[in-house]
Simulated scan of single mutants.
Amino acid sequence: MDQSPEADAPETAPADAAPSGKKRGDGGERKHLPVWQESILLLGIALVLAVVIKTFFVQAFYIPSPSMEPGLIRNDRILVQKVSYWFGGDPSRGDVVVFEDPGGWLTGEEPKPTGLASLLSKIGLYPTGGHLVKRVIGIEGDVIECCDEEGRILVNGEPVDESTYIADRKTCAGAGTGFGCSWSVGPVPDGKLFVLGDNRGASADSRAHMCQPDSEEDCTQSPWVDTDLVVGKVFSLVWPRDRWDWISNPGVFDDVPDGPPADD
């Protein structure tokens, strides 16, 4: 029986068919980077994220002195929230803040990280120094006085009970202040802060930069911290592990009345 020519013709594949063993069209296998290239890429992304976080959100610091005892002790590691005072927000009385040296406030040599620690500190993955940690006591318009019969600071005439967080005091003066238990300062100018350490007997804070009562009128000392120098608010103690804790405003200044707007 004769067969038609079509019966003997070899089968042909469409012109756009994929070769045997390979997938067609967009569903083909993707080419993967070698492991070492992927590792470098992931490391680069991690470093960029670390820099962004340090710059805009959170930064780690360490406590270099006993000035904030008993809550924060030497070599504690803390985290600072940088967004706390964005969008017009300002530090409040009672906040624990980290700020840049206003000029001549840092005393002594602080240990500097070396090697890998130095690199990590630049991108926010290792706690850094070169800053100060204090508690905000006075804001714009406030007048601060020391002290009432119970040894309490007065802000705008209102005594403040700080017994829950300050160290037991053997003296009203701080490190190198030369002041006793009777002084007054203010009103705090616009855009400035008056700060104290929680360990009032061992803290070179705003008191150390007040003009002495018997000083000449051209005294150039200034107890104020510019709000522009504030890095952010301390919100967590993260190391040592057994001391981990949240740090928040104690609320003891809530009854303090606002002072009048200060003259620039």
Rank of each mutant, 00 (worst) to 15 (best):
D2W: 11
D2R: 11
E6M: 10
D8N: 11
A9E: 14
P14G: 12
P14C: 10
D16C: 08
A18M: 08
S20C: 08
G27I: 04
G28E: 14
E29P: 07
E29N: 12
R30N: 12
R30A: 13
L33W: 15
P34W: 13
P34E: 09
P34A: 13
W36H: 13
Q37M: 14
Q37N: 09
S39L: 15
L43D: 04
G44K: 15
G44F: 12
I45F: 15
A46Q: 12
A46N: 09
V51T: 11
V52M: 07
V52Y: 00
T55S: 11
T55D: 08
F57R: 05
F57E: 04
V58E: 01
A60W: 02
Y62C: 00
S67H: 07
E69V: 03
E69G: 01
E69T: 03
L72E: 02
I73M: 08
R74S: 03
D76F: 00
D76H: 00
V80F: 01
K82M: 01
F87G: 05
G88W: 05
G89D: 11
G89K: 15
D90M: 10
P91F: 03
D95M: 04
V97H: 09
F99S: 02
D101I: 04
L106E: 05
P111D: 02
K112P: 02
P113Q: 02
L120R: 01
S121N: 01
L125C: 06
G130V: 03
V133F: 03
R135Y: 09
V136P: 12
G138H: 06
I139C: 15
E140W: 04
E140D: 15
G141A: 11
G141M: 09
V143P: 01
C147R: 07
E149L: 09
E149F: 06
E150K: 11
E150M: 09
R152Q: 14
V155M: 14
N156P: 05
N156W: 08
T164P: 03
I166S: 10
I166L: 15
D168T: 11
K170H: 12
T171V: 13
A175H: 05
G176P: 06
G178P: 03
G178R: 05
G180V: 02
V185L: 09
P189S: 09
K192A: 14
L193S: 06
L196Q: 10
L196M: 15
D198G: 00
N199D: 05
N199V: 01
G201C: 05
G201T: 06
A204M: 07
D205K: 03
R207I: 00
A208P: 04
A208K: 10
M210L: 08
M210S: 04
E217G: 05
Q221N: 14
S222K: 11
P223T: 06
V225R: 06
D226C: 07
L229S: 13
V231N: 03
V231T: 14
G232A: 04
V234C: 00
F235Y: 15
S236G: 07
W239C: 03
R241M: 12
R243C: 09
D245G: 07
I247M: 02
G251V: 03
V252C: 10
V252M: 13
V252Y: 07
D255V: 01
V256R: 08
D263A: 15
